[in-house]
Nucleic acid binder design. Structure first.
Lengths: 123, 123
DNA sequence: AGTCAAACTAGACGCATGTCGAAGCAACCT
DNA sequence: AGGTTGCTTCGACATGCGTCTAGTTTGACT
């Protein structure tokens, strides 16, 4: 394992990133911590994977169901899930033969907050 | 100009993308229209550029000010600004000698909305 | 043990991307 | 006109990334 998860949910690491980008300029280090997360969302397959996981009732999805939803090989799906996992947007849990993925709402919420536009800014 | 701006502000093109990713699975076409925008944010330099522009009072920034904020050459900054412009996150306007960039709040808001997590989802 | 299926890892291949130096445009000056 | 500054385009280079095939691990079931 070359990279370890960034863990967007951990306050100590990223609470100082929880500021709308519109409110004040991001520092270089804030930008460097946030950019990889947006990059992870910058692939259509990963966006759909995350959405499939996050919107699934029960809050988790088996890999086999995810693989079926795409015209891609299993290793490719596995690779994308690994990216999402390492960035802290999802977690994985093995139960018997199958592996289930869950979304991390806190991580999503942080990324949403950074892009949010206050009302008075005139959307 | 090889690509033209995606224009995230145009309702006809992207209003059907204005749905939280957590609410229901993104379709393939939705994901393919949204992913390039997140990819554009997936670089620390572009994130900071966008933040510098969006948070600047007056709502616009001259390129020269942006270039000074980084340890990069002018062509590189220009390249990143072009990416942000083509994706519809900023607009550019020349006034005399200088070029000013403005942020597009509507585009930002869309990307924020897609990542937003409803309260009851338990952040 | 042997087998099968689910999922991941390893390695390879081609395309995309970030960066730079050099050159080109555009607008302002003498 | 000529020169200067601000910004962009062009072309090149190294690196990164998405995808695949082939092989490996993990667990369940005979």
């Amino acid at each position: 394992m070359s990279k370890q998860p960034v863990d967007l949910a951990r306050p100590a690491e990223l609470d100082d990133c929880r500021v709308p980008l519109v409110a004040e300029p991001l520092t270089a280090s804030q930008a460097e911590r946030l950019a990889p997360s947006y990059k992870a969302l910058g692939d259509p397959v990963r966006l759909r994977l995350l959405s499939l996981i996050a919107s699934h009732e029960g809050g988790e999805v088996c890999v086999c169901d995810l693989t079926d939803a795409f015209d891609l090989t299993a290793p490719t799906i596995s690779h994308h899930l690994k990216v999402l996992k390492e960035i802290g947007l999802v977690t994985a849990e093995r139960r018997g033969t199958w592996v289930y993925y869950q979304a991390c709402p806190a991580a999503l919420d942080l990324l949403s907050t950074v892009l949010s536009v206050p009302q008075e800014a005139g959307v």
